[in-house]
Amino acid sequence: MASQGTKRSYEQMETDGERQNATEIRASVGKMIDGIGRFYIQMCTELKLSDYEGRLIQNSLTIERMVLSAFDERRNKYLEEHPSAGKDPKKTGGPIYKRVDRKWMRELVLYDKEEIRRIWRQANNGDDATAGLTHMMIWHSNLNDTTYQRTRALVRTGMDPRMCSLMQGSTLPRRSGAAGAAVKGVGTMVMELIRMIKRGINDRNFWRGENGRKTRSAYERMCNILKGKFQTAAQRAMMDQVRESRNPGNAEIEDLIFLARSALILRGSVAHKSCLPACVYGPAVASGYDFEKEGYSLVGIDPFKLLQNSQVYSLIRPNENPAHKSQLVWMACNSAAFEDLRVLSFIRGTKVSPRGKLSTRGVQIASNENMDAMESSTLELRSRYWAIRTRSGGNTNQQRASAGQISVQPAFSVQRNLPFDKPTIMAAFTGNTEGRTSDMRAEIIRMMEGAKPEEMSFQGRGVFELSDERAANPIVPSFDMSNEGSYFFGDNAEEYDN
């Protein structure tokens, strides 16, 4: 993207840094990872977990959730003011799984939030270390993106479920800051804005008074975040219109849905970061690795190297396929839920299948599930090659597409044709070009129609051997075009429920 120079890199967003050079960025990201790792080690000690239990991804998720809940100030305040039966607002906890007599047992633990905050700050040299908290939120978000298709949420806001490739980060909490905003897809931002506008339509006082002023500035800020994701002048001009509207209503909703559809071809720039579970960072720190000293990046080879040398386990339900569970977590670790499966298959070195073909449910185990038949197995999170994460949407291309997802959002900077089903997408653009945004709409449609099938995206960008740390010898991959490109292809993934 041309304006790259004016933006802070995501590592800076990730670490609240002012302008830093590459070495400083690597050190501050490393410091953040160190903090998460030290916190995780301490929690495993508190909970008396064995090494194996500490490497269980379900335990990692519970521990991450506990610290996120302990620092969720708004919710904590709300819980104190609106006490609900049987919930102690000062405590947080969740299921911890232990191996007892050759069987997995679930144990519900409860801790004072104050105590968890103390352990977290102690692991982070006394700081609140917001960057580390956001990092864990993005890992949870990436896992949700890989596990669930947001059909219901899309339909509720009037969008087409086939636009799911635009929904990265749709389950990120509001408090995820600049680093969170960077990884949100165009569809996620559109959905947040539509929800806001709908509230304004239904509630006369939404934009009024002292609160209304705050609401208005939040609305304009979200519009600017979305505008910054678009790469064409016409899309940005249309966002200006939406932002400046005196009284946002149905016309703005129409414009936003139009823009979301246009992003299936004229893709937005959305950041991709490899955020790993805390149970990967903990053992690495415990083994003596100093992330701050060595430096770390979320968008280069580092996460690949770390996963190459990590042992992570997962509980497996009786009829689940461990290899499929591994694929789910591998995609989440690489922030690749909406990437082209052919690119992923090449990088991973084994075939990556669409969601609907995987015999696996989510990673988390519900409290009512029976533990008797639970097994555990090693997650295979290694890769054959590594590639640089991208934040450009890439230019655009036609490809055989599917009944489910009709476009992709690249996660890796790797040369390819970008699949999208042009006739299906263009069919949504018939007729409606009147109104105050008509010239911009016409211009956007013209650009979409001009998108050429034979153009290559990320020209000359390749993948790298894991021994090639400096990215000196790019390998331009070859793809098996007979395979499906979309992950949520004609899909039956479970729906995400809060």
Rank of each mutant, 00 (worst) to 15 (best):
D439A: 00
R416Q: 09
P83S: 13
P83V: 11
A179F: 10
V29R: 07
G490Y: 04
Q168S: 15
L315E: 05
E443N: 15
E192F: 04
K273M: 07
H135V: 07
R102V: 01
K422L: 13
I225G: 08
P322K: 05
P161H: 02
M238I: 12
L298H: 08
Q12V: 05
K31I: 05
R74M: 12
W120I: 07
E375Q: 12
G93E: 10
V352N: 06
M167F: 02
S269Y: 04
T171F: 05
D491H: 11
I119E: 07
A403N: 14
Y219A: 07
F412H: 06
Y496P: 00
V285M: 14
E18W: 04
D468I: 01
S392Y: 03
Q459P: 07
D468W: 01
S245L: 03
G93Y: 04
D34M: 13
M440R: 08
E465Y: 00
A2K: 00
M159V: 08
E220D: 15
E294M: 06
A22W: 01
A233C: 10
M440I: 06
I201G: 01
K357E: 13
P283R: 04
K90D: 01
K98D: 01
N395R: 15
L328T: 03
N483K: 15
S245E: 06
S170T: 09
S457Y: 01
T424I: 13
S287V: 09
D290E: 14
V408E: 11
R121S: 14
G490H: 03
A178Y: 11
L298R: 09
R208P: 03
L108S: 11
S478N: 00
E339L: 03
Y487W: 03
K325S: 07
N319L: 11
R267W: 07
Q42P: 09
S287E: 10
A472E: 12
W139H: 12
I406F: 03
A472R: 08
E469A: 14
H324Y: 10
F71D: 09
A260I: 06
E465R: 13
K351L: 13
W207K: 01
K184D: 02
A129R: 13
S297M: 03
D468E: 09
V408C: 14
Q168L: 06
S383G: 13
E369K: 09
Q398K: 15
M456H: 08
C275F: 09
E53C: 08
D255G: 06
D491I: 03
P423S: 13
H82S: 12
Q122C: 14
D255P: 08
R236G: 08
S217I: 13
Y111N: 07
P453F: 00
A181S: 11
S217N: 15
G394S: 00
S383R: 01
A182F: 10
H140W: 08
C279Y: 12
G93L: 08
I253Y: 05
G132V: 07
N417P: 11
L226M: 11
R195Y: 06
L358W: 06
F230N: 03
M371P: 04
P474E: 14
T146R: 01
M239I: 12
M331W: 04
I444T: 14
N247F: 07
S478W: 13
F338R: 01
I25L: 04
V329L: 13
A153P: 06
L276P: 12
S50P: 14
L259E: 10
S314L: 02
N492Y: 04
K90G: 13
K273W: 06
D240Y: 07
S84G: 14
G462V: 02
R99L: 08
G394W: 07
S170Q: 09
V186C: 08
S165Y: 04
D112W: 09
E46A: 06
A451N: 14
N211F: 09
T130M: 13
Y78F: 15
G295T: 08
M426T: 15
K103H: 12
A237I: 00
N334P: 01
D439K: 01
N309V: 08
S482E: 04
L315W: 06
L259I: 14
S165K: 00
L226T: 10
I25S: 02
F479Q: 09
V476T: 05
V100H: 14
L298S: 11
G180T: 05
R121G: 07
E449G: 07
A284W: 13
M196H: 02
N59K: 12
K87M: 11
V329Y: 05
E115F: 10
Q308G: 13
W104Q: 08
L379G: 03
A411R: 08
L47V: 14
M481W: 15
D203P: 03
V270G: 08
P83M: 11
S467A: 01
E192H: 01
L266I: 15
P283Q: 14
L47R: 12
F206A: 09
D497M: 15
S457K: 00
K293C: 03
M159A: 02
N309D: 01
E449I: 03
D372V: 11
A472M: 04
Y97K: 14
W120K: 09
G94Q: 09
L133M: 12
K90Y: 02
S482F: 03
Y289A: 12
R361A: 01
T130G: 01
R38K: 10
C279F: 11
L49G: 04
M222I: 09
Y52S: 12
A2Y: 00
T424S: 13
E73V: 14
I316K: 02
Q399G: 10
V29F: 09
N432S: 10
Y111I: 15
G282K: 07
P173H: 10
V414H: 01
A401N: 13
T430L: 05
G404H: 08
I25T: 03
G54D: 10
R74N: 08
E107L: 04
R246H: 12
L154C: 10
N395K: 11
K90W: 03
E53K: 10
C44T: 09
G300E: 10
A70S: 15
Q4P: 00
A153I: 04
T157G: 01
Q42N: 02
S60V: 08
E73Q: 13
F489T: 12
A428K: 11
E443R: 03
N21E: 13
A451W: 10
G212P: 03
G37P: 07
N483Q: 13
T45F: 06
A493E: 06
G209F: 09
A233N: 15
D468F: 02
N483W: 00
V280D: 04
H140C: 09
N59L: 11
G209E: 07
R361Q: 08
L133Y: 07
L154Y: 03
A263R: 00
N125G: 13
F291C: 14
R8I: 00
R416L: 02
M105L: 14
I36N: 09
I138K: 11
R355F: 09
E53W: 12
L466E: 00
Q311L: 00
R391P: 01
G282N: 05
V312Q: 10
I365M: 13
V183N: 01
V299A: 07
R156L: 02
L344Q: 09
P89W: 14
N124P: 07
N397P: 00
D340P: 01
W207F: 15
M32F: 04
F291N: 02
I57W: 04
T134P: 03
E465G: 12
G200Y: 07
V270K: 07
R267L: 04
N397M: 06
S310E: 00
T171V: 09
A332P: 04
I33W: 05
V463A: 11
D240T: 13
I444L: 13
S176Q: 05
M447L: 14
D240Q: 15
G93R: 07
A260G: 12
K357N: 14
M371L: 15
N124L: 02
Q311S: 15
R106T: 05
R204C: 11
P322E: 02
M331A: 08
A123Y: 02
K325I: 06
L143P: 09
E495G: 08
S84Q: 09
N125S: 13
C44F: 06
M481N: 03
Q311I: 02
N142T: 03
G132T: 05
A366N: 04
A70Y: 06
D88T: 00
S392R: 04
D72G: 10
R348E: 09
E339H: 05
R106D: 06
H324A: 07
I57C: 03
N76W: 15
E320M: 08
S402T: 14
F346A: 13
A179N: 07
M136H: 02
D203R: 01
L315V: 08
T433G: 10
Q409N: 11
R199Y: 13
Q364S: 09
N334Y: 12
H82A: 05
G169F: 05
A336Q: 05
Q459C: 01
A323G: 12
A278Y: 05
R461G: 07
S84R: 00
E80I: 13
D491K: 01
E495Y: 08
L61M: 10
S314F: 04
D51S: 10
T350N: 05
A411Y: 00
I116A: 08
Q459F: 11
G93N: 04
T171H: 04
E73N: 06
R75L: 02
D16W: 02
E24Q: 15
N59I: 01
G187H: 05
